[in-house]
Design a protein around this nucleic acid. Sequence first.
RNA 1: GGGGAGAUACCAAAGUGGCCAACUGGGGCAGACUGUAACUCUGCUGGCGUACGCCUUCGUAGGUUCGAAUCCUGCUCUCCCCA
Length: 302
Amino acid sequence: MNTLIVVVGPTGIGKSKISIRLAKHYHSEIISADSRQLYRELCIGTAVPSQEELETVPHHFIQTKSIQDYYNVSDYEVEALTLINHLFTFKNPLVLTGGSMLYVDTVCKGIDDIPTVDPEIREEVVDWYRNNGLEALRERLRLIDPEYYRIADLNNPKRLLHAVEIHQMTGTPISAFRKNTVKERPFRMIKIGINQDRKILYDRINSRVEQMMDAGLLDEVRSVYPYRNLNSLNTVGYKELFAYFDGACSLDEAVDLIKRNSRKYARKQLTWYRRDADIKWFEPDQVQKIIEFTDQILKADG
RNA sequence: GGGGAGAUACCAAAGUGGCCAACUGGGGCAGACUGUAACUCUGCUGGCGUACGCCUUCGUAGGUUCGAAUCCUGCUCUCCCCA
């Protein structure tokens, strides 16, 4: 039976190392589910695996796009599934790992088919929102899509904007596209969660930020500073240093902020994964146990 | 040594007699999440309790008052200016 081993956990916990161990053990390959390691211009700040690590095991979806490319979860779903199904023709199991919760989930459960919004439409709607405000945006949504209005997070402009954009572009309310069903996948999944004591995790995150700085993060961020408004650069590790380049804060303050925002991100990831009952949790140093666990399941089908 | 300012919850910072368990921001904790998701948004944050509520807080010890974080006095500490 084709099996996808899914490794999740908070940033800085050591998913990459464990995934590489697993992939080596099974002579397999790694599919990355990371919305920022996707960009070739970003490396240090997104903690892309080292050149050496990348050479040990084939990796996919690492630094294959440009920060200037438009890319979204749905694109990823299509590309990742195509690749996974292809790889399964000669390798099994495969390892999926990454910190982007929605990316992982989209491989595991799928995402509804909703059209991609044209940039012009997006700009038009965003402008309208800037001029009219949140209250007006809500009202506009209520009129065009009362069904979505009922369940929407009315304080969240981004979500409301998207719903309005979809209607503006297609003439169809977003609720008509939302099926919210879990797609069947032609392979089995084993979900492995990595976590450890919060205090230790925070220490690891903090020191990893220091290491990134030592590795030249400042120069990396400087090199993409001209593109700072791109969404792909609305990213922890970059936005804080942009603020430093702007003169809005000191370098020390920016680095502290990176640490703090990384910790917040880790917490958010844990919140997301906590509700997934299919995940079997381990500590970062339990690679042996993880392998025993996956071996046991894989051998069960003989 | 003289003069001035101040001590508020984890931090910063409002409050200057009752509407104060105490604004707000940060941090922390918890949660939501269907299209650029490392995004965006929400709740809680003195203790106990599901809750009406009860108990203990605003440097410290007293005092005034029906009532004090807020007024008065002593003490401790911090900061600034002049010597």
